Amino acid sequence: MSRGRDQCTSVAQYPTDQPKLVELTGKRFISPGHPQGFGPEKSAKILAAVRTHICPSY
């Protein structure tokens, strides 16, 4: 949840810059099995979920 809330801050800063937001999502959402992130396609899906469920007003 904390990464999602942090991503909302980025969404507020760059509301119309989808490429930038996907890039930031890729940097923010990492795991031990994916230390470089999940790639742009999955990052875009994560971003969409964050916008829909965590910060829909942005």
Rank of each mutant, 00 (worst) to 15 (best):
F29T: 08
I30G: 11
F29I: 03
S10H: 15
F29Y: 14
V11S: 04
F29M: 03
G37L: 05
F38H: 09
S31P: 04
P35Q: 01
P15V: 12
G39A: 02
E23D: 12
R28P: 02
E23G: 09
S31L: 10
K27A: 13
G37P: 06
H34M: 11
G33F: 07
Q13S: 09
A12P: 03
A12R: 15
L24P: 02
S31F: 01
K20M: 15
V22A: 00
I30W: 03
A12D: 14
V11D: 07
R28N: 13
L24I: 15
G37N: 03
V11R: 05
A12W: 13
P32M: 06
T25P: 08
I30A: 09
R28Y: 06
Y14D: 07
G39Q: 09
P32R: 09
P32K: 11
P40W: 04
E23Q: 14
V11Y: 01
V11E: 02
K20G: 07
F29C: 05
F38R: 03
P19T: 03
Y14P: 01
L21V: 02
G33I: 03
I30H: 05
L21C: 08
F38P: 07
Q13W: 03
T16V: 13
L24Q: 12
S10M: 09
P32A: 09
Q13R: 11
V11N: 05
K27R: 14
G33S: 09
Y14W: 15
G37A: 08
E23F: 03
E41H: 07
G26D: 01
G37E: 03
P19A: 04
L21Y: 00
P35N: 06
K27N: 07
P15F: 06
P32S: 07
H34Q: 14
I30K: 15
D17R: 06
V11G: 03
P19Y: 04
E23W: 00
E41K: 11
G37S: 14
L24A: 04
A12T: 14
P35G: 09
K20D: 02
G33V: 02
F29W: 06
L21R: 02
F38E: 07
D17H: 08
L24E: 07
Q36S: 11
P15H: 08
G39F: 03
P19I: 08
T16F: 12
R28Q: 10
P15S: 04
L24G: 05
L21E: 06
P19Q: 01
H34E: 05
G26Q: 10
